[in-house]
Amino acid sequence: MSQNSHNMNVFDRLAKKLQRDRTAKNEDYHQFNYIKDEVGNRLSDRVYDINRKFKKGLDLGCGYGHVSRHLTKDAVEELVMCDHSALVLEKASIPEDTTINCRKIEVDEEALPFEPESFDLVMSSLSLHWVNQLPSTFSQIMKCLRPDGVFIGALFGGETLYELRGSLQLGETEREGGFAAHISPFAAIRDIGGLLNSAGFTMLTIDTDEISVGYPSMFELMEDLKGMGENNASWIRKLHLHRDTMFAASAIYKELYGNEDGSIPATFQIIYMIGWKPDPSQPKPLERGTGEISIKDLYRLDEVVKNATENMVKQTAKEITHNLEDDDGKKM
């Protein structure tokens, strides 16, 4: 293992790069991009939800351009697309809006080469789950953002492929008396907020979504994961599975999770995150004690709102009556 042990590196980054290089060499590589294309489309919607035109944006771990292809000049004027795999980057689709000034750079997501305060917008779709030191990458993203810049990202969550993980564990235990890690670990949604906060991001928005895809069997699922470049790249991965173990796991998968039509479902949990670099122009929370409703009155919130509305109506009616009386006095 060439990595420093004190860094607690989980993933073999070179192996992951080689796996993704292989996907780019396949003539039908685009057929395996359905998950990443869908998430990229949803992530681009979040860019447009922000009512702002960004001067310079970064697509970090752009893959085959899953997000960038949807961007227009209304969203970003200049775009930098980067990926760890030069072969993938070469085939990445640039924005359909050719008026965007776009360039590609080969970049390792663990070591960003950009100058401080270089971008107004940083996007990353389904790339950062292969980063060993996610807190460090978040800090580097924060550093290269300009004040009031925004980071919009998506990564696979901890519930991703739970059916496959459980089936392989049960099948291997049954056939070999123990099991190894065949599915790479993913971040839990409860951890993402803390990591973003620690990196200095503010005004966080984090939500999760699930995409379920049906496959004829476990073998087609594993073949598609390989085609996506999402096969296991952890240091402790087991390089080979016995044939008996594979068939046992496939049978268990279909028995425990199979659909009525004979297919099997595979769940992909997606964690979406938005974080802003602090700036004095951003809205600030009210100081403690300035609230007009006590938290102890929350159980009777409807009553409090009703009373406040009635008081407001009475006050408004009183002011209108007073103004009318003043107008009558002036006329006389």
Rank of each mutant, 00 (worst) to 15 (best):
S68E: 04
S68N: 04
S68D: 02
S68F: 08
S68A: 14
A75Q: 01
E77D: 15
E77S: 15
E78Q: 15
E78F: 14
V80Y: 09
V80Q: 03
M81N: 08
D83G: 08
H84Y: 10
H84E: 03
L89H: 11
E90N: 09
E90C: 09
K91L: 13
A92Q: 03
S93Q: 12
S93N: 09
S93Y: 05
I94Y: 00
E96P: 00
E96M: 09
T99L: 08
I100S: 01
N101G: 09
N101K: 12
C102F: 04
R103A: 01
R103P: 00
K104H: 02
E106I: 14
V107Y: 03
V107A: 08
V107P: 02
V107I: 12
D108I: 12
E109T: 05
E109W: 03
E109L: 09
E110R: 04
A111D: 14
A111F: 15
L112K: 12
P113K: 05
P113Q: 05
F114A: 12
P116S: 15
P116V: 14
P116H: 11
E117F: 13
S118W: 12
S118V: 13
S118T: 14
S118G: 10
F119A: 06
F119P: 06
M123R: 06
M123S: 08
S124V: 09
L128N: 00
L128M: 11
H129C: 04
H129T: 01
W130E: 00
N132H: 00
L134W: 02
P135L: 13
S136Q: 13
T137L: 02
F138M: 10
S139P: 00
M142F: 14
K143R: 15
